[in-house]
Amino acid sequence: MPLVVGRHINAAEFSDNNRLMLVSETLAQQLEPNGDVLDKRYYWRGDMPYQVRNASLPGKKEPPRLFVRGINVSYPLLILRHKPHQPLSTTELNKEFSQVNRQYKVSELFSLEEARDLLLSNDRVSVWVTTALTLLALSLAAIGIFGVLSYSVQLRRTGLGVRMAIGARPSTIFYHTLTDSLLPVVLGITIATLIVAPLGVWIEQSDFNIETSLLGWLLPPLLIIGLTASVTRLSVWKIINKPAIYALRGTG
């Protein structure tokens, strides 16, 4: 890379593990108002000092960057293609590499399927843990809602029995019970929306990198409404599925 001022890190400094680094012009301006960062000491990753030597990439505006000496032990990666049903081993590959350069050694060998599984392993664990916690939260919410609605239906058992006795259909009883159950839920969702919506607008305009979608906003309220409807039907089913006399007697 062309340099504005300073110099590159040489081989001797690399071998001696000297704490030097190159910085871009953007980072240099952030570190010092005049961009003069040569031969000054800064701290990176805790209390490890790195002596600043260079600012690079003239005439090109870029995000703040720094470059330090080091080799990533995970690289270089080579992709090899072999004939079907003829797998290779690290011993065979090292034997072939030794004919080109004895400094090249293969430490790990993965198939494409194994590399894919290794790459996705963290994401898969995150998905399974998130799914398990979501199902646990929904189960606890269902138990709580069922307890509240079941107690409410038991208190209204006689009234529901009277309405069934004078000709109300089970679907009508369920509809009115569901309406009463959803009223506080809709009220709570409305209040939560009025609080969360301005917060979402502020997050989108801030420096926080949080991605949201319409489905992400709609899914929680829909789950709550669906859960309430299912629990309401389960709570009132024992009453509307039997003759009105059972509800009037308070039995069954």
Rank of each mutant, 00 (worst) to 15 (best):
I173Y: 01
Y104A: 14
L119A: 09
G216K: 05
W128M: 12
V100M: 15
I189K: 01
P220H: 13
L138T: 05
Y151H: 00
I225M: 10
Q29Y: 11
W217D: 05
V127W: 09
G59I: 06
E25F: 01
I203L: 01
P198E: 11
V153H: 00
F14H: 11
Y151A: 01
L140S: 03
H176R: 08
L119C: 05
L218M: 13
K40A: 05
F174P: 00
S235D: 10
V52H: 00
K83D: 09
P243L: 06
P76R: 15
R69N: 14
N18C: 04
S235I: 05
F174T: 02
F208G: 04
L199W: 11
L93H: 02
R169P: 06
Q29N: 15
L199Y: 12
P87E: 11
Y246H: 12
D16N: 04
E13K: 02
G59N: 13
S24R: 01
W237R: 14
Q205F: 07
D39T: 08
P49H: 07
H85T: 14
G35T: 10
G59Y: 06
S111N: 11
L248Q: 08
Q86Y: 08
R163A: 02
D117M: 07
A141C: 03
P220T: 09
M164C: 04
G167I: 08
V196I: 15
G70I: 13
W202H: 04
R81Q: 05
R69F: 11
L31C: 12
P2S: 12
W128T: 08
Y175P: 05
L66K: 04
G250W: 09
D207I: 10
A168R: 00
S181N: 12
R157C: 01
M164K: 01
T212V: 12
N17E: 10
L160G: 01
V153I: 02
Q205P: 03
I191K: 07
N54V: 10
I225E: 04
V100A: 15
Y104N: 10
A137K: 03
L138E: 02
I79T: 13
K40H: 11
S213A: 03
E25S: 03
S213F: 02
G226S: 13
L78N: 14
F146S: 01
V68W: 06
V196A: 15
P198Q: 07
L218K: 06
L88S: 15
P84V: 08
A168T: 03
F97W: 04
E32I: 14
S230F: 14
I203H: 00
V125P: 05
L149T: 00
I189A: 02
K238Q: 14
W237Y: 10
P243G: 12
P64I: 06
L138D: 02
Q103D: 14
